[in-house]
Write a protein that binds this DNA or RNA. Structure first.
Lengths: 340, 340
DNA sequence: TAACCTTACGAAAACGTTTGCGTGTGGATA
DNA sequence: TATCCACACGCAAACGTTTTCGTAAGGTTA
């Protein structure tokens, strides 16, 4: 099992110095054509590849972007990653992905690990637990060490850095408006607990839409779900005695679960109840009936985030800091879960 | 914006040598208690973290596992990653993930990039294009440089290395048997083109099951889908004039698409046609009717793959090479898409 | 007081690169 | 023949660690 070949070994073998080999491989005019060819042939033969670690150490940059997301098993986040990779690869950056699993501790560990040498900058969506704890010291520390951070989707207002978000409120408003325009009057919302920033924002959007239509929001039409994994029973109880004609769900899972519950209660979607979801994932697309939903354009978010980050990474050192918040437009995708 | 603090800076500040600082931080008895405390206090104050790059260079290992998968936006692969992370984190390894996007070139690039310094070993499922091209030089090269590789799911028989797979044939047989035991006689299969190893194996399993039941397989009950993204029309045409009473789909998407098509043709699942899928993803779970399917136990695959890899990484250098192929049991999950 | 032992620290090499600069060799010029 | 200039190459430093070994200062022993 041959080890990886280094400049030193090539140098020894060819009886020249390390610098000669290095320069020869870079086609430096300093080196005679003859030697250059010899070195290159040898390097090719032994499949020489420069050691990235050594390069990173020397250049003090890794040409790598670290992405940390709350859940890897999540369609939205993976589409964002797709966008990031697109831009990153174009610009010669690599992408490494870590998941925090929504754990604060794991987020800290991953960030510190990547920050201590593996990545030049970060694109990150904070863990649920982090939002709850409101402890952002790890992110602040990373930034204070000169590594740029771009937050997306689940952002933190207090942190001064680039951000890429959608207008969650507006998206929710659009969704609710759509239901209202279809003539729905009794619109329930399935949302998350308030400490999830996006859940809260979407709830607010829903309320705003109702107000604009002069409909008084009813407390008992609002369900704030805590335990996402077991939402079915909560949703089932919630819908038990309610005579709603529409549901706005702040994510895909809530939307399909509502559809399932309604189905079991003998109600039809969209004939009896219309449903609008949020996030255009696989579920929404393939469900029967396919779900009308608000698309977050995950890939676009990734693209913008990567661009922001690379701009910072390649920008002048001493340019006065200036941070942008990019707001990606959402769009309503009409499918079968809302009546015409 | 303060830069990351290094041993050198601490040394300078405290007017001691770099080695003293390094030893003090490691609580070496060589250093007086007094100095040790001073150094540690200073290091803490300035939030010193050793530079991983430098460590990797010195130790010639990164304590990082590289995972390369064909698609990041894919539930099965992400569950595998979950399993890998579990084991890796326990053993003090980090995990970095790259996606090949089913492109041969990107797979090569990613592998070479990670191999040249960023990871000590690999867990990988090969890209579709790679299976098609049958060009594995990049993987062979990586292994010949002394970096262990564990293949999973989409493996390559010719490659001599550790592998983690499910018994695709057996899984398919189980699925088909289930349909047969329900009394279904006219069972169609929706599968992939043959160069996708798992598709072929599953097709074979289906054929074996039929044979065991003394049912002659019919060519016209087999649909080999090439373009996964546009499978709907193919499936629709295929089912147009067929009077099947059951469908075995080799993946989730084919299964739900079949359900959708049947639905549009006015047939009911499972009353008119039973469906069994493969892979226990979100779609199968939340679809209405929820899908009977073969679970691949992705997390378990990840766990086993990570263990195999770490064993190799931490094993003796000169132990004779020995490679294992772990076969994970599949299991049938009965849900609503097959009649009782 | 000479020889020796601790204690506490520093110097230097090594990991694999890149690169500015120094230098020996040979030929051309004056 | 003495001077100069390309040419082709090597040296060494630097990136941030860890670790082996060397050593000065001071104390103890004979």
């Amino acid at each position: 099992m041959k080890q990886k070949v280094t400049l030193k070994q090539i140098a020894k073998e060819l009886d020249v110095s390390i610098s000669t080999v290095s320069k020869a491989l870079k086609d430096s005019v300093e080196i005679s054509l003859d030697t250059r060819q010899k070195v290159k042939a040898f390097a090719k033969l032994y499949n020489y590849k420069p050691n990235n670690i050594a390069l990173s150490l020397k250049n003090r940059k890794t040409k790598t972007i670290g992405v940390i997301i709350p859940e890897i098993v999540h369609h939205f986040f993976t589409t964002v990653i797709g966008g990031v990779e697109k831009v990153a690869n174009e610009k010669g950056y690599n992408v490494i992905i870590c998941s925090s699993n929504n754990s604060f501790d794991k987020e800290v560990i991953n960030l510190e690990m990547l920050a201590s040498g593996s990545a030049d900058g970060f694109i990150l969506s904070v863990a649920k637990e982090t939002q709850q704890k409101k402890d952002y010291h790890h992110i602040e520390e990373t930034m204070s060490q000169g590594m740029p951070v771009v937050l997306f989707d689940r952002i933190i207002d207090e942190l001064v850095c680039d951000k890429v978000i959608i207008d969650d409120g507006k998206g929710a408003q659009t969704a609710t408006n759509h239901l209202l325009s279809l003539g729905c009057k009794k619109i329930a919302i399935l949302t998350t607990v308030d400490y999830i920033s996006v859940g809260k924002l979407r709830t607010n959007g829903y309320l705003r839409a109702l107000r604009a239509y002069d409909i008084t929001a009813r407390e008992d039409y609002i369900l704030k779900i805590e335990d996402i994994d077991n939402c079915e029973s909560e949703i089932s109880d919630f819908l038990e005695d309610k005579d709603v004609d529409a549901i706005f769900a702040v994510n895909e899972l809530f939307a399909v679960t509502a559809a399932r519950v309604l189905n079991e209660k003998g109600k039809k979607v969209p004939e009896d109840v219309s449903i609008v979801g949020f996030t255009d994932g696989i579920l929404s697309k393939h469900f029967i009936p396919s779900l009308t939903t608000i698309s977050q354009h995950g890939e676009e978010m990734g693209i913008r985030a990567a661009k922001l980050l690379i701009d910072k990474l390649e920008g002048e050192e001493d340019v006065p800091e200036e941070y942008k918040t990019v707001i990606i437009d959402t769009s309503l995708i009409q499918r079968q879960s809302t009546k015409k």
